[in-house]
Design a protein around this nucleic acid. Structure first.
Ligand SMILES: [Mn+2]
Ligand SMILES: [Mn+2]
Ligand SMILES: [Zn+2]
Ligand SMILES: [Zn+2]
Lengths: 153, 153
DNA sequence: TCTGAAATTGAGAAGCAATCGCAAAACAGG
DNA sequence: CCTGTTTTGCGATTGCTTCTCAATTTCAGA
């Protein structure tokens, strides 16, 4: 298991470096949002952060959260995840192995999977089409074991 | 190449069957929307249909289009496609081989690819997790050859 | 430590796709 | 035709996200 403290410092450093490189300032609001985003180890959305911040008596406006999350994405700390909800979810990528998702259409459970063979086939597909990949969305939607057991098709 | 006329009739029949099975009526509005959706062979969105209908002097309200497209999806004629736009796009699936997409982040071009090996590996992943797949989203985002040629990263 | 140009924030307004409520219209079976 | 049901159109509404702009904060340099 990783050293939690060291990991967190690295996240801060990485974000600070990104901001500085782009002439942006590392404000206390951005720090609060960064910490909040990494306080959980699950997928989260804007309202999760808002709720968490209010529970801790931290004040950051919703607008600032909406402005900061894309910065965390561009800095390589987070990525967007598209569940079956209509609004955007996020997850950590910094310090995590790349993976994709199985999403239960009934209970919403998310199972993570990583398959190196698929990833390399994917690279081949891109080469065949002379396409330079940047990222991908790969979500398999269906029913988890529990929900199938309960009769969900 | 397929017989266009026969294919279209089949689409109508399939939709009619779906509607009847679910106690719904095959109204002229639904027929107009179905025909409009299959008049193009590209991905399309609600506003594309609206524009096309107005060009042909057909009147169907936006609300009805929004109500009908999900029916066309459930009946197995269309599926949703998630480009990098924020609103929903659709494409035909009835009478088309399954495929996924490479999407250019610069020019928006969409390249379709089908890879049976990936699809079967995907089935294996689901089996390993005792997950019953229904559908998947698989989009690779990056830059097409032309855009890379023009210096886009 | 002080200063000031530049960046950032907060609060609410605005934008926009998508959905909803409801009265009028269309439909289908008898 | 009649009658119960479904569907439509329209406008209003929702919910997420972005925008506007005055007030505040930041930080490099004096
Ligand atoms: Mn994940
Ligand atoms: Mn396609
Ligand atoms: Zn489930
Ligand atoms: Zn391109």
């Amino acid at each position: 298991m990783k050293n939690e403290r060291q990991t967190e410092e690295s996240q801060v450093e990485k974000f600070a470096r990104y901001l500085q490189t782009n002439g942006m300032k590392f404000t206390k609001e951005r720090r609060i949002i960064l910490e909040s985003a990494f306080a959980t180890h699950r997928h989260f959305e804007v309202d999760d952060l808002l709720f968490q911040l209010r529970s801790n008596n931290k004040r950051v406006s919703k607008a600032t959260i909406y402005r900061t999350l894309p910065l965390l994405v561009r800095s390589g700390l987070l990525r967007e995840v598209h569940d079956d909800d209509k609004h955007t979810h996020y997850e950590h990528i910094y310090g995590h192995e790349h993976h994709d998702h199985l999403i239960c259409l009934n209970c919403g459970k998310i199972i993570e999977f990583g398959n190196p063979i698929i990833e390399s086939l994917q690279d081949e597909v891109c080469k065949q089409h002379e396409f330079t990949p940047v990222k991908h969305r790969y979500e398999i939607l269906g029913y988890c074991r529990e929900c199938v057991g309960k009769g969900h098709p």
